[in-house]
Design a protein around this nucleic acid. Structure first.
Lengths: 335, 335
DNA sequence: CTGTTAGCGCTTTCAG
DNA sequence: CTGAAAGCGCTAACAG
C-alpha cells in the first residue's frame, strides 16, 4: 500500500490524505466517504470514518468550496436592527440553515455605502444563495442580481424582481382588516403612522389600510411617516398627529414598536379621549400588560424558516424557479 | 508576453489569471495589487486594478483562505435570542467587522446539541477567530478550545479560561450599586430575580447584589430564578415572590426584560403597595413611558465593538495575548 | 519591484 | 466500487 504525501499537515489539522493513508485507501475514497450521496461500500465508509475519528479529522470547507461548486454558505443581508422581531429572524435562519448543513454569513447593509461591498463580499465567499431581509431592496443588489446565477430569496415582503423568490405575509389584507376593526369599534377619525417611506412593508400596509378606509369612510386617513422604525421617531410622529386640528381617535401603526410609541405619546400628551392604537407584528410588545393593544399577528418564525428552507431547496436543486409564498396574518385583540 | 492559462473561467467569474493576462503582468502581481500591504509600483497597481474592473473581477475568498492562512471570517457563537439587547450585538459585530474587512459567520448554539457541531463548522470554515456571546460557556467549546490556536473573545461577561479574552461590564459593581439604591430609597425587604442559573451574568449580578445587601441589611435578600430570560417566566417568578409571607418591597431584576415582567406581574397582582423595581441593561425597555424604571446602564455597543475590534487585532497580530477589559456601568434612574 | 514555481485540501472526470 | 491524475483560484517563498 502506497503512502504518498505523508507530509505533516501544515496547520496542525489533519487532512483527507492523512486519513487515506491511515485507512489504507485513496484520497478519493475518503472524499466519497464524507458525502452521503456518493456510493461507497458501507464497510469502506466505516473504515474511513473511524480513521478520520482517530485523527480528529474534519474537512476543510474552504478547499471544498474551491474544488467543488458549493460552499454551503448563505449570505444574510440585513438592514433592520431596530425592531425586536428581527431577533427571531437571526434565530430561525441560523437554526434552520444549520439543520440542513448550511451556515449564514451575516451581512450588514444598514448603511448605503456597505451595500455594494456586502453583496460583493458574499459573492467572494462563494455563497450559494442570498437571503434578504431588508426594508427596501437596495439598488446595488438589484444591479448585481443579474450577474448572480445564485438564488435570491426575499423575506417579509414582496419584490418586483421576478428572478427572486419572496416569502411574506399578506400585508395588504392585514392592514385592511385593521381598517375594518377601527370602523367597527367606533373610530371616527382614523390615522396612520409609518416608519420609513422607502420600506416596502410600510407601503403595502399603508396601501391596504388607506384603501379600505376610503371604502368605509369615503376619505383618506391622516398619515404620518416617522422616518425610522424606532421609539423616539414614533413619539414625534404621533405628537404631530395629536396636534392636528382634528385629533385622530384611532391610530394604525405599521409596527408594534411604533404602537408602543404611540401609546406613550398619547399618555404624555395628557389628552382626555385617548385614541385607540393598533399595531402590526404580534411581537411580545403587543402583549405587555401595560400596553396590550390589538395587532396583526405575523407568523414570523414560520415565514423565516420557510424562506430559509426554500432557499436551500433552490440551492440543492430540489426546487425549480423563483416562487412566492404569502402567509395569512390575522388581527388579534390581545384583550 | 506569455499568455498562459487563458482557459475560460469555469464558473463564469473571471480569475486573477484572466486579469494578469489582460494587464500583461504575472498572476503574482495581480495578487499583490489586491493586498494593500504588499509593495507594488503604484503604476502597476492601477494598471491591474483597471484590468480587474474591466473584467469585473473579484477575488475568490475560498481560494484565498485555502492558499493563505487567513479567511477573514470570524465565528459568532450565540445562544441568547430572547433579549432585545442582542440586536445591538448583531448590528455592531457585523458593522465593526465589515469595517475592517472581516465578516461574521452566524453560529447558533441555542441547543446543547448544536454546540459541538457549531464550533466544528466554524473551524471547518477556517474562521480566524471566535466571538462568543453565550450566557454560559458551553462545555464543548471549552474542550475544543485547546485544539484551536485561534483567538477567542468572550463578550458580556468574565470567563475563567485564561486563554480567552473577555470584554464585559462590571456586573458586580453595577449590582452592588442597585443594593445601595434600594437601601437609600427606603426598601425594607429586597429581592432578586434571575433568568438562567447557569448564566455567568446572572451569577455575577446576583453575587454583587447579595453581597452588598448583606452588608447593608445583615441578611440575604429573597431570590428567585425564572429559568429563562423571558417575559412569561419572569411573570411567574415574580408571582412566586409576591405570594411569599413577607412580600418584598424592592425587586432587582437581572435584565430589563425581567424588570418589565416584574412590573406587569405587580400590576396584575393588584397589590396595593407596589414594590420598587430595578433592572439591568439600560435598553429602550427601561425608558418606555409606561414603565420607566431605574436600571444599570450597560455600554453595550461600546463593549461589542471593542470586543470585535480586539478579536481582529488578535487575528492580525496587532495585539498579543488574551486580555480583559471591564467597562463601568452606572445606575440611571430614568425618572 | 516583479516573475517562477510550488502547493493549500478537496472534488472530479476517467479508467480500471 | 475504487484509484490516479488534473485542477479549483489564490498565496508564498524564492529568485532575479
Amino acid at each position: 500500500m502506497k503512502t504518498k504525501g505523508s507530509r505533516r499537515p501544515t496547520h496542525g489539522r489533519s487532512t483527507a490524505q492523512d486519513v487515506a493513508n491511515l485507512a489504507g485507501v485513496s484520497l478519493t475514497t475518503v472524499s466519497r466517504a464524507f458525502h452521503p450521496k456518493l456510493s461507497v461500500a458501507e464497510k469502506t465508509r466505516k473504515l474511513v470514518r473511524s480513521a478520520a475519528a482517530e485523527l480528529n479529522y474534519s474537512p476543510n470547507l474552504a478547499a471544498r468550496a474551491l474544488a467543488g461548486r458549493r460552499s454551503n454558505l448563505i449570505g444574510l443581508l440585513i438592514n433592520n436592527f431596530d425592531d425586536p422581531e428581527q431577533l427571531e429572524l437571526f434565530r430561525s435562519v441560523s437554526s434552520e440553515a444549520q439543520k440542513r448543513g448550511f451556515h449564514a454569513l451575516l451581512l450588514n447593509i444598514d448603511q448605503e455605502s456597505q451595500q455594494v461591498e456586502s453583496v460583493d463580499a458574499a459573492l467572494q465567499y462563494q455563497v450559494d444563495g442570498l437571503l434578504v431581509s431588508a426594508s427596501h431592496l437596495p439598488e446595488s443588489l438589484v444591479q448585481r442580481g443579474a450577474e448572480l446565477d445564485k438564488p435570491v430569496v426575499v423575506v417579509g415582503r414582496r419584490t418586483h424582481r421576478l428572478e427572486y423568490s419572496a416569502i411574506y405575509c399578506d400585508n395588504v389584507a392585514g392592514a385592511s382588516a385593521v381598517a375594518d376593526y377601527l370602523f367597527e369599534h367606533g373610530c371616527k377619525r382614523p390615522a396612520f403612522i409609518g416608519g420609513r417611506a422607502e420600506a416596502t412593508i410600510v407601503q403595502e400596509r399603508q396601501a391596504g389600510f388607506v384603501g379600505r378606509i376610503e371604502e368605509l369612510y369615503g376619505y383618506q386617513p391622516m398619515a404620518r411617516i416617522a422616518g425610522a422604525n424606532d421609539y423616539e421617531n414614533g413619539i414625534k410622529a404621533v405628537n404631530e398627529l395629536l396636534s392636528l386640528p382634528k385629533v385622530p381617535d384611532g391610530i394604525f401603526c405599521v409596527s408594534d414598536l411604533l404602537a408602543i410609541a404611540a401609546r406613550d405619546a398619547i399618555l404624555l400628551s395628557g389628552i382626555s379621549e385617548k385614541p385607540q392604537v393598533v399595531g402590526f407584528g404580534g411581537t411580545f410588545l403587543s402583549k405587555l400588560e401595560s400596553y396590550k393593544f390589538p395587532t396583526v399577528q405575523v407568523p414570523f418564525q414560520k415565514m423565516v424558516r420557510t424562506a430559509t428552507s426554500h432557499l436551500i431547496d433552490l440551492v440543492e436543486g430540489l426546487e425549480e424557479g423563483p416562487k412566492e409564498i404569502a402567509f395569512q396574518c390575522e388581527l388579534v385583540s390581545n384583550s
